[in-house]
């Protein structure tokens, strides 16, 4: 859901170029369902450029923190389907930062290989559960 946007364009040239690029990718996604991603780390972005872009894209409905090989932060912007994804490495420095245009960033989706492994682990742990005698009796009633 889109909330009220800001009328003024970002002041930094780089942020403005990125806003345009994101807009084109979002329109293409809406049209064809083709997701896209823009790598921010490869760009000569200053903190000011980043702040301007962040402020203009605003906050959406979802924010998630991941504990996957260090921390990651994902949040939807005020434009549905536009996500700001930050992966942190050692000492909490940004290892990868990108804008994803997708229904949901892939990293949030549970991979079926992990689901299969989780099901097997669940089974093993269930088999090893020591059930108190009173509950075992209750099971036979």
């Amino acid at each position: 859901m889109e909330t009220d946007g800001q009328a003024t364009a970002p002041g930094s040239a780089l942020a403005l170029i990125l806003v345009r690029e994101i807009g084109q990718a979002l329109a293409a996604f809406a049209e064809s369902g083709e997701p896209a991603a823009i790598d921010l780390r490869g760009l000569p972005m200053s903190d000011a450029d980043r702040e301007e872009l962040l402020a203009w894209l605003g906050d959406g409905e979802i924010a998630a923190t991941l504990a996957v090989a260090g921390r990651s932060e994902i949040r939807e912007t005020r434009f549905t389907g536009v996500w700001w994804v930050r992966h942190f490495g050692t000492d909490d420095r940004i290892a990868a930062e990108r804008i994803e245009i997708a229904s949901v960033p892939d990293i949030l989706i549970a991979d079926m290989a992990d689901v299969t492994a989780a099901a097997a682990r669940f089974d093993d742990e269930l088999a090893e559960l020591s059930i108190p005698p009173s509950m075992e009796e209750a099971e036979h009633v």
């Binding site: 490869g42 991941l66 996957v68 992966h87 992990d114």
Partner: peptide
């Protein structure tokens, strides 16, 4: 998987690799 590391970690690593090697981000 044996070490309890999920595919998400591989995806995150791939995002880092794509960025570090200047590969298209959609390739991750």
């Amino acid at each position: 998987a044996q070490r309890g590391v999920s595919r998400r970690a591989i995806l995150k690593y791939a995002a880092w690799l794509a960025s570090a090697m200047a590969l298209p981000p959609s390739a991750s």
